[in-house]
Structures are given as C-alpha cells and as structure tokens.
Deep mutational scan, measured.
Amino acid sequence: MSDLPVKVIHVESGKILTGTDAPKAGQLEAWLEMNPGYEVAPR
C-alpha cells in the first residue's frame, strides 16, 4: 500500500484536497466510499 496522497476534488463545490488533507493512495477506494461527491482530480 502506498502512503502517497492522491489529489481529489469535490464535484459540486470544486474543493480540492491535496497533501496532508488528501487521502493516501492505499486508502483511496475506502475514502471515496466514505466521502461521496469526491473524485480523483485530473492531473
């Protein structure tokens, strides 16, 4: 599992989470399930 943060964006508000606020790569799927409305942000 990776500890690198994955940049995500809230589709409706446009809020972007990066760095320490962003979910870790190894926890991404579970985090997205618990935080509806967020998607992986385009690079």
Rank of each mutant, 00 (worst) to 15 (best):
D21L: 11
E33W: 00
D3F: 03
E29C: 03
L32D: 01
P23I: 00
G37L: 01
K7E: 15
L28Q: 04
K7N: 15
A22K: 08
H10Y: 00
E39Q: 13
L32R: 04
P36W: 01
Y38N: 05
A41P: 04
V8K: 07
A41R: 07
A30Y: 06
V11Q: 03
G26C: 09
A30C: 07
M34G: 09
M1D: 15
E29F: 01
W31E: 11
A41Q: 08
V11D: 05
E12C: 04
Y38L: 02
G37Q: 08
I9E: 08
Y38H: 03
V8H: 01
G37A: 05
E12V: 06
L4G: 02
Q27L: 04
V8Q: 09
V40M: 06
M34T: 12
Y38P: 02
H10R: 01
P5C: 10
L4K: 12
M34P: 10
P42C: 10
K24A: 13
M34Y: 02
V6Q: 10
H10K: 06
P23T: 07
N35D: 00
L32P: 01
D3K: 05
V40S: 03
A30Q: 14
W31L: 04
E29V: 04
Q27A: 12
P23R: 01
K7Y: 05
A30S: 11
P36S: 07
E33V: 03
V40L: 09
L32Q: 07
G14R: 00
M1P: 07
H10S: 06
L28M: 07
E12Y: 00
G26F: 12
K7F: 06
Y38V: 03
K7S: 14
G37Y: 02
L32S: 04
E33A: 12
Y38E: 04
G26A: 10
E29S: 10
P23C: 01
W31R: 09
M1K: 08
L4T: 15
P36E: 05
P5V: 12
M34K: 14
S2F: 11
P42Y: 05
P23H: 01
A41G: 04
P36T: 08
M1T: 15
A30P: 07
R43P: 13
E39N: 15
A22C: 10
K7C: 13
A22E: 04
W31N: 11
I9R: 13
G26E: 14
P5W: 09
E39D: 07
P5T: 15
L28A: 05
D3E: 12
I9C: 04
K7G: 07
G26T: 12
P42H: 14
E33R: 12
K7V: 12
M34A: 13
E33T: 10
H10T: 00
V40Y: 07
V6F: 06
